Deep mutational scan, measured.
Amino acid sequence: MATVKFKYKGEEKEVDISKIKKVWRVGKMISFTWDEGGGKTGRGAVSEKDAPKELLQMLEKQ
């Protein structure tokens, strides 16, 4: 499965696309949330040019 790689608060992170729940556009950035388990929700953002095609497809479906 595809993953999204991004930096959050200076830390490199990687999230499996299948865990992503919500995707939206903020200017030229793609923001998203995912389920971290245990009732926690993670947040992240990646530039439109660095976003994997699967993430962009999720954005178009909404």
Rank of each mutant, 00 (worst) to 15 (best):
K5Q: 02
R43M: 14
M1V: 10
V4R: 00
E54D: 05
F6H: 02
G37S: 06
D50W: 10
S47P: 13
F6N: 01
S18H: 05
I17F: 02
L56K: 13
V46P: 00
Q62E: 14
K28N: 13
E54I: 03
D35Q: 12
D35R: 05
L56I: 15
L56P: 02
E48A: 08
T33S: 11
E48C: 15
M58E: 11
R43Q: 14
E48W: 04
G42I: 08
V4L: 03
V26I: 11
R25E: 11
R43F: 13
S18V: 11
E14I: 05
Y8E: 14
L59W: 05
V4A: 01
V26N: 12
K7E: 07
W24S: 12
K53C: 15
R43G: 08
K7V: 07
F6V: 14
I17K: 02
A2S: 09
D50Q: 13
K40T: 12
T41I: 14
K49D: 11
T33E: 13
Q57E: 08
G44R: 01
S18E: 08
T3M: 05
F6D: 01
E12P: 04
K61W: 09
K7N: 12
F6K: 00
A45F: 05
L59M: 06
L59E: 10
A45Y: 14
R25T: 10
Q57P: 07
L55M: 09
S47D: 13
S47E: 15
G37K: 05
A2C: 13
R43W: 06
K49L: 11
W24L: 09
M58D: 03
E11N: 10
F32Q: 00
E60D: 06
P52C: 04
D16E: 10
V15F: 01
V15R: 01
E54N: 04
G27M: 10
Y8Q: 04
T41A: 10
F32V: 05
V4W: 01
K22V: 15
I30V: 09
A2N: 12
G42F: 10
V26W: 05
D50A: 07
Y8T: 03
P52Y: 02
V26T: 08
K7P: 14
D50M: 08
A45I: 04
K22C: 15
S18T: 07
V26M: 11
R43L: 15
K13P: 00
K40I: 09
S18I: 10
G39M: 08
V23M: 11
E12S: 07
G42R: 11
F32C: 06
K49G: 06
L59V: 10
I20N: 00
K5I: 03
Y8R: 01
K7D: 12
K53R: 04
S47N: 08
E11Y: 04
I20C: 04
E48N: 09
K9F: 09
K13W: 05
A45V: 15
K61N: 10
K61M: 10
M58G: 06
M29W: 13
I20K: 00
K19E: 10
E48G: 05
W24K: 07
K13L: 08
L55N: 00
P52D: 03
G42W: 13
V23I: 07
K53T: 14
K21T: 11
V46I: 10
G10I: 01
I17P: 02
K19M: 14
Q62P: 12
Q62F: 03
D35Y: 09
I20Y: 00
K53N: 07
K9D: 14
V46L: 04
K13M: 07
K13D: 01
I17Q: 03
G44Y: 12
K9S: 03
G38L: 08
T41G: 13
W24Y: 15
K40A: 13
V15K: 01
D35V: 04
K49F: 08
K28D: 14
K40D: 12
V46T: 06
E54V: 06
E48S: 04
W34K: 00
A51E: 02
L59F: 08
K28L: 11
K21W: 14
K13Q: 06
F6G: 02
I20L: 08
D50K: 04
F6P: 02
K28V: 11
K13E: 02
K21Y: 12
L59D: 03
W34T: 01
G10R: 01
E54W: 05
G37N: 06
G39Y: 05
G42A: 09
V15P: 00
E11S: 05
E11D: 04
M58H: 07
F32R: 00
A2Q: 04
E14A: 05
Y8S: 03
K13H: 08
V15E: 02
Y8M: 02
K13A: 03
K9W: 07
E60N: 12
Q57G: 07
G37R: 04
L55I: 03
D50H: 14
K7I: 13
V15Q: 02
K5E: 01
E36P: 04
T33L: 07
E11T: 08
S18L: 11
M58P: 02
G10P: 00
K13V: 10
A51K: 01
F32E: 00
V26A: 10
G27Y: 12
E12K: 03
V4K: 00
P52S: 03
K5S: 02
G39Q: 10
D16Q: 13
M1D: 05
T41V: 12
E48L: 07
G39K: 07
G38I: 07
F6M: 02
L56D: 03
M58N: 05
G38Q: 11
Q62T: 13
K61R: 04
V23C: 10
K5T: 03
V23H: 02
M1H: 15
G10K: 01
K61E: 11
W34V: 02
G37L: 12
A2I: 13
K61I: 14
S31H: 10
A51F: 05
D35S: 05
F6Q: 01
G44H: 05
L55H: 00
I30C: 04
M58T: 05
E36G: 03
G39A: 13
A51P: 04
E12R: 03
M29D: 09
R25Q: 11
R43V: 11
E36K: 07
E11M: 10
K21M: 14
G44A: 14
K19Y: 13
K19P: 01
M29Y: 07
I20A: 01
K19A: 06
A51M: 10
I30F: 12
T3F: 03
T3S: 05
I20P: 00
W24G: 07
V26K: 09
M58K: 14
Y8C: 14
W34C: 01
G27N: 13
G10N: 04
K40P: 09
D35N: 12
Q57D: 10
R25A: 09
G44L: 04
K53S: 10
Q57S: 05
R25M: 15
K5F: 01
S31T: 08
M29I: 11
